[in-house]
């Protein structure tokens, strides 16, 4: 049976670089997951209201109020690269 999983594309989207033996193993794992979802699909859910959340709660808000966190320096210190008040990343320019 041909694989349902395009492991190279999945890896690329997830920014993972996989060794050939990992590709085989992960393809199989992912196919098993999909097969399990197919099994779930067999259940009759026509009388069940669709939900996107596990908890039976809705409408949780916060007021529009400012609180200063003061975390900037801690986070900048832990960044792979810091340049003054900025984070520094490899050059990214699209197009132009």
């Amino acid at each position: 049976m041909e694989s349902k999983i395009n492991i190279d594309q999945v890896a690329k989207l997830a920014r993972l670089s996989l060794k050939p033996e990992e590709k085989g193993k992960l393809s199989k794992d992912l196919e098993n997951i999909l097969a399990y979802v197919d099994l779930l699909q067999e259940l009759d859910t026509s009388k069940v209201e669709p939900t996107s959340h596990v908890l039976p709660i809705e409408n949780v808000f916060r007021k529009d109020k400012v609180i200063e966190s003061g975390v900037r320096n801690f986070v900048l210190d832990h960044a792979p690269k810091r340049d003054g008040k900025f984070f520094k990343v490899p050059k990214v320019i699209e197009g132009l």
């Binding site: 690269k81 340049d83 900025f86 984070f87 520094k88 990343v89 490899p90 050059k91 990214v92 320019i93």
Partner: peptide, 10 residues
């Protein structure tokens, strides 16, 4: 990207 040559600031 301006004012920096060896990367980008965020």
């Amino acid at each position: 990207h301006e004012g920096i040559t060896d990367g980008s600031w965020v």
